[in-house]
Amino acid sequence: MKKHMKLTWAYIFVIVFGLIMIFPLIWMFFATFKDNKELFGSLTILPKAFSLEPYINGWKGSGQFTYLTFFANTFKLVVPTVAFTVLSTGIVAYGFARFNFPAKRILFGLMISTMMLPDAVIMIPRYVLYNKLGWVDTYFPFWVPGLLACYPFLIFQQIQFLRGLPRELDESAYMDGCNPFMVYARILMPLLKPCIFSVIIFQTLWRWNDYFNNLIYISSVKKFTLSLALKMSIDSQGASTPWNQIMAMSLLSLIPPILLYFFAQKYFVEGVTAGSIKG
């Protein structure tokens, strides 16, 4: 009986607290259908009338460029970066997990230690370098670090996973005449799939939500991503900020990460716990 009561309280707590946690998102959703006066005037959560006006006018963006451009730009930045990251970090993890070569211990140690390297301390010389190469105001500063596997956390995750796969798999493939690259591409990569999903999810969320790098590397509105477009929308409106439109566009910008999260949830929790618990 006592145990029963305790469980009831536990349910009440997690439900009420869960509602409080997602309340800002629920409120945001309904706010996108309200008109601007109603946003400030009334406290009811549901709008008086569901109006699509905030979406229609918000979508117009800066006037010169609509949110179609900003969405397309964000995809142009994120998708290749994620693809490059998957390819590069996977093959690097394979190299570290399965081969012995000179100075491997030192190189591995260096790779792990870069996990502690704060972005702030390398970003100025990186900017100077990209500037010299003429890459400022392009998406190269995002694509190239993906191509060159500059994400030690994602490499480490895959190394941990590969360590769990028996080496006999590789051996028998060698017997069948595979070379080391084919062993990875044909045998290990398919088995690595759950881990690759988690790499895709992490990198997509990081790049999609990133503001800082967008801010320093992208300067022309034509190339603005959603982060920059949204920031611009709260800056440039002057006295009467159309908050309903800004909320509408903010909400739209969150939809791709949310969809990704719901579709790939299973891998997500695995990925989050992999690097830390098993360690």
Binding site: V92, F101, K104, L117, R126, P145, L148, C150, N179
Partner: peptide
């Protein structure tokens, strides 16, 4: 082969870190 596989990271480490 191992060294070839980690080459992307090694370049990234030297140039970008």
């Amino acid at each position: 082969w191992g060294m070839i596989f980690i080459l992307p990271w090694f370049l990234g480490f030297c140039i970008l870190q």
